[in-house]
Write a protein that binds this DNA or RNA. Structure first.
Lengths: 230, 230
DNA sequence: CGTGAGGTTGATCGCTTTCAACGGAGGTGG
DNA sequence: CCACCTCCGTTGAAAGCGATCAACCTCACG
């Protein structure tokens, strides 16, 4: 059964035109996932490529003693399954209720017709993924806890549907554990820094899962603007 | 003039067959870089794709206050310039003396003939890069200083030419600053943990730039084996 | 109304950073 | 040829930030 997480207002839906559209029509199978349902686990045969239709998933790796690192969150329009060869290199599970479409990798990659357009788009997608992973590495390696939380909220704002201007509010679909594992922190540190942002008047948290950005400029400053301005 | 770094014994040279061979012959230009010479900077027009012929380069991002995160090191056979759209998203400089070949991106990507083979190989390369970045994120987000240093030395051993069995010794081509910025630590912490590994009898450091692995199994254990064994 | 999961807050611990001094290697110029 | 200087690396002492341990709160659900 679904929790209130994903059935409530403002469901996250795929944008109009995506790479996915290009592949649509090739033996797609749609699949529904509930919160914490796994899509696949590290080591599974990497048979399918998945496209997120609705909801959010998280890709993560774990160490033998249970320490977990969330690599990325996948939103509607995103593709999951690139960067794997024979077996998936990480695990993937739903953060909230989600729907994904699967397509057999062979169907695109080893199609004799040679779909140049598709390969180019997959390459573009890999490019975007690489860029965002570089950003994430900078965060994990060099940012303070407050900067990490601010950066995360900013990313959340950008990826949330609707306007993300001053005063806009949006849902935080993932748990504090998911956030902490994404930011390389503990849930306590995430919570503390959320509160710190609240005391500073940068954000408000009407509920734990809802955020209201009061001062987006300050939030951007606290997220430590990268030096792209040179 | 070159420093002793790259002219000394055991130069790092490209393996026999690489993706690069596939592209060879298309308006390539070779270029020599000395230690710390930049190949390009964040924000530059991403006109070229580079292939490392010899030496090692490092790709990094910096925050406005100077904090630096090394994203990856590029070895002979590696490709640099993927994951950028119009402008490079990170900076790249030589860690030691190096030679690279450049090719205009347009020459491959927008060639009307549609070189399916090349695009597929670029995609494969992006896959490998994504996988190693996921590994790196796990390191940055969840590993302790000792585990990071051990992981780094293991990576170094694997990428160094020649056998990397017990008792093998190899050079550390990058400075402690490069290592620290790669591992998300300070140079002091890197140094301290190198010493700790030496006291434990896992490695020996005849010189600061030369390492001798005495107990590779213990080194692997200390690097915290990931749970791929399931 | 009881229960359990998720989130917040407080107190303390400890690992990594910071600040600081020292040592060795390589390069330069007297 | 040697003294000097600078860069890089190591080591020590102290400080600080995030982790850990623990209590409490809130809300959804049975």
């Amino acid at each position: 059964m679904y929790t209130s997480q994903e059935t409530s207002k403002a469901p996250v839906v795929a944008p109009a035109t995506t790479l996915w559209d290009n592949i649509a029509g090739r033996c797609l199978r749609e699949q529904a996932l509930r919160t914490h349902d796994p899509l696949f686990l590290e080591g599974d045969d990497a048979e399918f490529l998945y496209g997120v239709v609705e909801g959010i998933l998280c890709n993560y790796r774990i160490l033998s003693d249970g320490r977990r690192q969330v690599i990325s969150f996948s939103y509607p329009g995103d593709l999951i399954g690139l960067g794997h060869s024979a077996a998936y290199h990480f695990s993937c599970e739903a953060v909230c209720g989600a729907r994904v479409r699967s397509i057999r990798k062979n169907a695109i990659l080893y199609d004799a017709e040679g779909h140049v357009g598709i390969e180019r788009r997959l390459l573009e997608f890999a490019d975007v993924e690489l860029a965002s992973m570089q950003e994430h590495q900078l965060l994990l390696g060099r940012k303070t806890a407050l900067e990490r939380v601010a950066s995360f909220l900013l990313m959340l704002a950008r990826r949330s549907v609707g306007d993300h201007a001053q005063g806009s509010h949006f849902r935080i679909p993932m748990t504090r554990t998911d956030i902490a594992d994404y930011l390389g922190l503990t849930i306590e540190t995430v919570s503390r820094n959320m509160s710190k942002l609240r005391f500073k008047g940068v954000i408000d948290l009407p509920q734990a899962t809802t955020i209201l950005v009061l001062d987006i400029q300050l939030l951007e400053t606290l997220a430590e603007a990268e030096e792209g301005a040179f």
